[in-house]
């Protein structure tokens, strides 16, 4: 290009090159005026890694009017983490919207059976916590947590992938994943012992049967049924119960490019007299290349921990 421009500018080839150069220059000058600052920049932090293994960066810059970018249409794809930071999705004291702290506003509408179930659960967390040795949380045996408890247990970096038929979620804890079908299939009917599909009884599943539909271009509503029964799973780490009759409704609302709001309401007439909201968790977009350390339940490591620490901590004076 330089050679062309340095030659006579009125010959045919030189004029074409000059025109292209001018268009490019003017375009580059106009582009920043046409789009807000930050449109092209990423709002998530980066950790430097000489070998290309960036670690999570939790001190994300705030989303402001200046750097905010619009949410893409019907797209939840990304690496998401609680906006409040790496402890923002812990929920050890109970689900986010109703922590189990004994306050009147956080009392749950138990059915008699639900209350009986709650009292049979000896949790290590919450207002009725017991010593580690008395704790009967199914998690202690590395049992799968099930839906919806995976949404309430140490939520950190969560990856979402999607295609034309489904959304897949990869949870951090125990490297678990689930599929939400978005191809229009029906939500199965809940029956005793599982769900009914095509007139057949189908088995309960750890992640149940999930279908999603777009309420608008930014909001996916997900319904899940057919989960594990109440003798296999808990709702949260404080021993609140959940049954296989539950219908879990989640909404994933892409507020803007960098923010995803994850809400959940449960309807479980076997255990609760009314539906109630369990969480509303804002998530922030992270560097998609972030390396995620494993956080798993290993029976051998759990056993070693219990011998060294848990059983000692539970001894009476």
């Amino acid at each position: 290009m330089f050679r062309a421009l340095s030659g006579p500018i009125f010959n045919k080839t030189g004029r074409v090159m000059l025109n292209r150069f001018l268009i490019l220059t003017v375009g580059l000058l106009i582009a920043p005026l046409a789009f807000p600052v930050g449109t092209f920049a990423q709002n998530y932090g980066h950790s430097r890694s000489a070998d290309g293994w960036p670690q999570p960066t939790w001190d994300q810059p705030p989303v402001t009017a200046r750097n905010k970018k619009p949410a893409p249409r019907r797209d939840l794809t990304g690496m998401w983490g609680p906006a409040a930071g790496h402890m923002g999705g812990l929920q050890a004291g109970g689900v986010l919207a109703k922590p189990n702290n004994g306050k009147p506003e956080n009392q749950l509408p138990y059915t008699p059976y639900g209350l009986e179930l709650y009292r049979s659960h000896k949790a290590a967390e919450g207002v009725d916590a017991v010593l580690p040795a008395d704790n009967n949380d199914p998690r202690n045996n590395c049992e799968p947590l099930g839906v919806p408890r995976y949404n309430h247990y140490n939520v950190r970096l969560t990856q979402i992938f999607q295609d034309a038929t489904k959304v897949a979620m990869l949870y951090h804890y125990d490297n678990r994943w689930r599929v939400i079908w978005t191809d229009g299939r029906k939500l199965p009917k809940v029956v005793d012992g599982g769900v009914e599909i095509d007139g057949e009884l189908r088995e309960p599943r750890i992640f149940g049967y999930s279908v999603g539909r777009w309420l608008d271009d930014q909001t996916l509503e997900v319904q899940t049924v057919g989960t594990l029964p109440e003798d296999r799973v808990w709702l949260d780490s404080t021993g609140r119960p959940i049954s296989d009759q539950v219908r879990v409704t989640e909404t994933f609302r892409r507020v803007d490019y960098d923010t995803l709001e994850w809400s959940e309401t449960i309807h479980d007439p076997k255990v609760y007299t009314a539906p109630w909201q369990t969480m509303k968790l804002p998530m922030r977009l992270h560097d998609p290349g972030t390396d995620i350390m494993e956080y798993y339940c290993s029976p051998a490591e759990q056993d070693a921990y219990d011998k060294i620490f848990g059983s000692v901590a539970s001894q009476k004076k």
């Binding site: 812990l90 967390e125 916590a129």
Partner: peptide
């Protein structure tokens, strides 16, 4: 300290 997973705070 606020409640933390795994074994809870009752022992502390």
């Amino acid at each position: 300290a606020p409640l933390f997973a795994h074994h809870g705070s009752a022992a502390f």
